[in-house]
Write a protein that binds this DNA or RNA. Structure first.
Lengths: 348, 348
DNA sequence: ACGCTGCATGGAAGCGTTTTCATTTTCTGG
DNA sequence: CCAGAAAATGAAAACGCTTCCATGCAGCGT
């Protein structure tokens, strides 16, 4: 049979459709008795409200879009976990847009998917949206929050990558290192991914401030994965003469790859080579990685909670049509410097 | 102004709503001229059809649900990548249900989310659904396909875990190992996650067939992560006397954790200890892990494609109401045995 | 030229809820 | 016990599309 509709519930409960709707969605002005009746009838019939009908009528979707470059990478999957948990608990659906590297797909997502009025809000991770694109989203009354990306005009949650990269580098410098290499990300492929450049700038600023030379051949790039950095680090460390005494990797995954490469060369970490990363990868514990922990999962959860608050506020203020307050707040997420055993004074 | 509706487009194009609808959704029986007119008007107004209205009226959602235990784990995020790519290309949305370990959340997802008629189909990864639960899903005319999980009555894509675990173990036995340890997953927490038991059974079957003893103290469990297995492997390898000469880990991540632990003890892999894993983790390449590659991304993509085909077929056969063919096919996904450098003959 | 077939078109009926608004019932204090 | 306020209720109007159906028209064979 064709699944019970609210009408069937109403008939069975001996109430009107309107009352049943109010009763089931927990609205006020329903007598306890009616509410009870409605719920019982709904349960008996196995009634589940039609999402589309409900959304169409109410304008509320209970659905948040999440745009990430790749769930396969540690940082992003951490964010997804955080967002997902918060949304599920609030009864919201999470629509995932795993855009990948192709700019073409990015466009499709932006145009065809995000704008179809089916999302209450959008969380964009490490995605650089143009002012116009943001305005387009805001124009359909959808709050956006960005994580780890620059979203002019929208709220963001992020860490101060430049400063933290500098702090990490300064840690090495403070230990006495002068010959410091940097593993950066190869971001030229993707215009949306400016992070490597920012961290690299922090690194270079710290080096410059300390009066140390940044050797071009000691800045190598990798794809933000352990295996990618492993390969790059092997190249970097292959030269027996004039080897750096420390490496600042732009992510924990790349730092770990570096450590694995160092081990393969018989280099002890930290006696022969100090390695510092950034992000807070769980695996860092295993290899004793010194790093700066930014809790991406927490960032995701926070983003989701902020969004839900905004949506609730909007829902309360006016039942429909009131654009949720688009006050763009830019908040910095707290980080934690974790000194473990991968950094030490340089070899004599 | 409140976003253009199809009515606005119709007015602007000088056509009726019906014709515009047909024109824009690529239906037949529209003159080229009208179609052109409609498209132009839509473009000028920046018209994007309302998802909900469209779904409500047509009964088609263009949305597939994906249920996974945790996107944060390698295997699942690989599957998500595969599914996501295929769906995006087809213009489908992907709704992600990252259920986690809590059975409570599992229930919520099953009842509140999956049944709300907003999904065209469901892909469940490593999720064991009861016959009743499957019937409930099928009852709302939604095809389901399971990946890596036993779904009685629904289509599945999977590998033969028992046989492959056996093959992996036999590889070690074939090299001459008799003292073989096993790292299994701690699945007792989650009734949905039977995989560890199956692989373990394969291991034990191979050992029994070869007449080798399975020592209880040499079967340790971990949480399927590198760091978890690292800790467990340390315990396992701590005993200097009577140490196994080989380890079969129930996942690549755990095999990698084992290798890292072995290195910490000064054990050389494979000279002192052979390690074999299962899954095909990218990181396996870095540590030279011998393993059995099951391409989870490919499995995800395949699942999505199968589903889309079914949906298309259903759409063609009857415009509405025809339950998409629920022929439950159970297909085995091809795997590839990768012999790398982590396994060798046992030390003398 | 004429009735037919078949394509193009527009009017209008849903799709299954939520929400408004008017109405009825219940409660409150005097 | 009653007027007036507050609470509960139901009828019906959206919500914005898709699609059925009836109509208008062009092309066609005879």
């Amino acid at each position: 049979m064709g699944l019970a509709g609210i009408k069937d519930v109403a008939d069975r409960a001996g109430l009107s459709i309107a009352t049943v709707s109010r009763a089931l969605s927990g609205k006020a002005n329903v007598s306890p008795k009616s509410r009870q009746l409605a719920k019982a009838a709904a349960a008996e019939l196995g009634f589940v409200p039609s999402y589309h009908a409900s959304s169409l009528a109410s304008g509320r979707n209970h659905n948040v879009g999440l745009v990430v470059p790749s769930v396969h990478r540690w940082y992003f999957s951490s964010v997804v976990e955080g967002v997902s948990g918060a949304l599920l608990d609030a009864g919201y659906d999470l629509t995932l847009y795993n855009v990948g590297d192709e700019p073409e797909r990015r466009q499709i997502v932006l145009n065809d998917f995000l704008l179809r009025k089916r999302l209450d809000a959008v969380i964009a991770v490490a995605l650089v949206l143009s002012e116009a694109e943001i305005q387009q989203l805001l124009a359909i009354h959808r709050p956006i929050v960005g994580i780890g990306g620059a979203l002019a005009g929208a709220s963001t949650i992020r860490i101060d990558d430049a400063r933290l990269a500098r702090t990490a580098t300064e840690h090495l410098i403070g230990l006495g290192h002068t010959r410091i290499a940097h593993i950066t990300g190869d971001g030229e492929l993707n215009r949306d991914f400016k992070l490597p450049g920012i961290r690299r700038a922090g690194f270079e600023a710290a080096m410059a401030a300390a009066g140390h030379r940044v050797r071009p051949e000691w800045t190598v790039s990798a794809d933000f994965t352990i295996q990618g950095a492993y390969a790059s680090a092997r190249t970097l460390l292959a030269t027996a003469t004039e080897r750096p005494t420390a490496v600042f990797a732009a992510s924990d995954e790349m730092a770990i790859g570096t450590i694995l490469a160092a081990r393969d060369f018989g280099l002890r970490v930290p006696q022969d080579l100090s390695v510092i990363g950034m992000d807070g990868h769980e695996l860092g514990e295993v290899v004793g990685l010194t790093t700066i922990n930014q809790d991406p999962r927490g960032q995701g959860a926070l983003a989701a909670r902020l969004l839900l608050e905004t949506l609730d506020a909007g829902a309360k203020r006016r039942t429909k049509g009131a654009p949720p307050a688009p006050e763009a707040t830019d908040r910095e997420y707290p980080t934690e410097f974790l000194v473990r055993s991968s950094t030490a004074v340089p070899p004599v």
